[in-house]
């Protein structure tokens, strides 16, 4: 990151409305900027923003966008930790901008960068179509042969519990930013997609695990994972992709051994 590129901008008095908040305490944001139209690589830019107890990082970014610099570019939407839009690297850790409090970083500075292991479109915006391709590859939908007609597929709370945790993924992609393998090996399917595959495999209503096995048991699937465990640590929804992948490995290994020991048996 070019240190020389750091410039500090604060709110112009003519532009900011009467700022009701206490300005005596503020904090420096160092935000990664990359404009594909001008820059060859990202650099950091500094902004000073007030600290308020209830502000999350996203509030600070919106303060900059609204009052200081309209060119600052980032994604966000629900600001309640469920839409998955606002994953950034905050002081080097992948986090949701809407669930990370500014005051926890006082006195600062706070460094905000785009999620690691993704191409950068602009500033904090990353390119995620690759993830969507991988997601589609693992067939994350219920596969159920036979009657799709009347009546529900029964499922006890215990059966629901088997996959509930892995169904909580909001596709925020923090796990991909935390996973070194995803960075090193771009064809590795990665934590979130594998966890979702596991979610459907463990669903008592689903019959597609054999179909999914072909993709998942590929070297780019579960076997690429070396169980760093960081995906699970950073997951804001406690999906535990690392656990899901290891459980899947165990199942695949059992399956593999079975067909190895009993090649004549049914697959």
């Amino acid at each position: 990151m070019a240190a020389g590129g750091t410039r500090v901008r604060t709110a112009n008095s003519d532009r900011s409305e009467s700022i009701t908040m206490a300005r005596n305490i503020d904090i420096e944001l160092q935000v990664s900027r990359y404009s594909p139209e001008q820059d060859l690589e990202p650099h950091l830019q500094s902004y000073r923003v007030p600290i308020r107890d209830e502000w999350v990082i996203l509030d600070a970014l919106n303060y900059v966008k609204d009052k200081i610099d309209g060119t600052l570019t980032f994604r966000w939407s629900c600001r309640m930790g469920i839409c998955g839009s606002c994953g950034y690297m905050i002081n080097g850790e992948p986090k949701l901008g809407c669930a990370t409090f500014l005051k926890d970083y006082a006195p600062g500075p706070v460094k905000i960068e785009p999620l690691r292991n993704f191409p950068i479109v602009r500033d904090l915006v990353i390119e995620i179509s690759d993830f969507l391709e991988k997601l589609k590859k693992v067939k994350p939908w219920l596969i159920h042969e036979g009657s799709n007609g009347q009546g529900e597929y029964l499922q006890t709370p215990d059966q629901l519990e088997q996959f509930r945790q892995h169904s909580m993924c909001i596709n925020c992609l923090l796990c991909y930013a935390a996973c070194p393998i995803s960075g090193l090996d771009p064809i590795f399917i990665g934590p979130a997609a594998l966890a979702l595959a596991h979610r459907y495999n463990k669903d008592s209503r689903d019959q597609g695990s054999a179909e999914r096995m072909a993709t998942l048991s590929h070297p780019d699937g579960i076997w690429g994972c070396t169980f760093v465990g960081e995906c699970t640590r950073v997951c804001p929804k406690h999906v535990d992709p690392a656990g899901a992948i290891q459980q899947y490995k165990l199942a695949a290994a059992m399956d593999g051994m079975k067909s190895f020991l009993m090649p004549w048996g049914k697959r």
Binding site: Y34, P36, E37, D39, E41, P42, R116, N117, P119, I120, V121, E127, P180, G183, L184
Partner: peptide
């Protein structure tokens, strides 16, 4: 035409 920046991973990432 979007022009993405692809950060390179350092050999010493770990």
């Amino acid at each position: 035409h979007p022009r993405w920046y692809r950060p390179r991973i350092s050999t010493y990432w770990w």
